[in-house]
Simulated assay, not measured.
Amino acid sequence: MIIDLPSTTTSQVNKKLVELRESGGAVALGRVLTLVIVTGDGTEVEKAIQAANDASREHPARVIVVARGLKQAAPRLDAQIRVGGDAGASEVIVLRLYGALADEGAGSVVPLLLPDAPVVAWWPSDAPESPAKDPIGALSHRRITDAAAEADPIGALQDRVRSYTDGDTDLAWTRLTSWRAVLAAALDLPPHEPVTAATVSGAADSPSTDLLAAWLASYLDIPVRRLEHPRGPGIVSAVLERPSGNVEIVRPDGKVGSLTQPGQPDRRVALQRREVRDCLTEDLRRLDPDEIYEATLHGLSKITKGDEAEQETDEEGEES
C-alpha cells in the first residue's frame, strides 16, 4: 500500500503512521533500527528503496528516504508512506524536499526516528566528504557510503581516509568479503609459508581493488603492487608470492574465479560481483566500529601503483 501526502509536514506524516498502526496496516514494534537513505530526487530513489526492502527481510526497519529535489523550487515537503508488500519487512517513508528544505534533511528526519532504536545513514551516491560531520550522519550510529558509485571513485576513497570516524563503512569494502574469505582459506592450507609480496590487479577506477591491496599490505605487512587491468570490471586477480610458489586467484569475467596454489588442484570459486542489497544486508549486521576497515584505509598509503604493461616489462627484465 502506498499513501501520498503532497505538500505536507512531518507532524502530518507521523499522524498518518499512527493511524496506519491503529488500523492494523503497519506494526512498528518489530523494527530493529531506522535506516535513513540520503539521495537525489531521481531514478536512484527506487533502486535504493528496493535494496533496503530486500535487506529488511533480515533487518526489519523503518526506512526514511530523504530525496533532495531542486533548491530553486518553492519550499515544499512531499511525503509518501509505503507499507505491506510495497515495503518488504519495513515501513518506508519517502520525503521529497524542495527549495530551502532540500538542505534541512536532518530536521525532517528527527521527528520520524524510532525511539530507542539505532540509526543507520546510507548515501547510495554523492556522499559528503565527511559523513560523520553531516547533519544526518551526526544522528547516526553507523554511516554507509559507496565510493564505487561516486563520479571519482578513487578520490572518494581518499576522502574516506581523511574523514574516517568510528561507525563509518563503505560498500566498496563490503564487496571484498568473498575475496578475503577465499584468500584467507587458501593460506590456511599447507605449505604454511610466509607471504613475501603480493600483486592485485583490477580496473583503474575500482576502489575495491585498492582496498584489497591495502588489506594485504596492512595485515601481512608485505609490499603490495596495485596494477591497473584493462579487462575489469572490478578486481581481476590477486597473487600472493611464497617461496614454494604463488597463490593466485584470477576472475576475468566478474563471476567465477580460478584458484591456483602449489600442491593443490586448481579450483573454481564463486566470486560473483555482489549486489548492493547483499552488501547493505551485511553492513546492517553490525553497529560497532570496524577496526579492520579502519586499518585497511590507513594501509592505502602502503601500496605501490602501476599498470599491467609495467608489470610485464619488469618481469621481462628479471628474466633477461
Rank of each mutant, 00 (worst) to 15 (best):
I2E: 09
I3S: 14
P6V: 07
P6L: 09
P6W: 11
L17Y: 02
E22I: 14
S23L: 14
A26R: 09
G30R: 15
V38F: 02
T43H: 12
E46M: 12
A52Q: 10
N53R: 15
A55Y: 11
S56R: 03
E58T: 15
V65H: 06
V66C: 08
K71R: 12
Q72I: 14
A73S: 15
A73M: 15
P75Y: 07
R76V: 13
V83S: 11
A87V: 08
G88W: 10
A89P: 07
S90T: 07
V92C: 06
I93L: 12
L97T: 02
L101F: 03
A102Q: 00
E104G: 02
V110S: 14
L112A: 02
V119T: 13
S125Y: 02
D134P: 05
P135G: 14
I144D: 01
A151N: 11
D152W: 06
R162I: 13
T165W: 04
G167D: 08
G167I: 03
G167E: 10
D168M: 03
T169S: 06
S178Y: 12
A184I: 10
A186N: 00
D188T: 00
P190T: 04
P194C: 13
T199K: 10
A203Q: 08
S206G: 06
S208N: 10
S208E: 09
D210A: 08
L212K: 00
A213S: 09
L216M: 00
S218M: 02
D221I: 11
D221A: 15
L227A: 05
L227Y: 07
H229K: 06
P233Q: 14
P233Y: 03
I235C: 03
I235K: 01
L240W: 12
L240F: 03
P243C: 05
V250C: 11
K255C: 05
G257K: 08
S258M: 08
G263R: 15
G263I: 10
V269G: 01
A270E: 11
V276C: 01
R277S: 14
L280I: 07
L284Y: 14
L284T: 02
P289S: 04
E291I: 04
E291A: 15
I292N: 15
A295M: 13
A295R: 15
A295S: 15
T296C: 14
G299T: 08
L300W: 13
L300G: 06
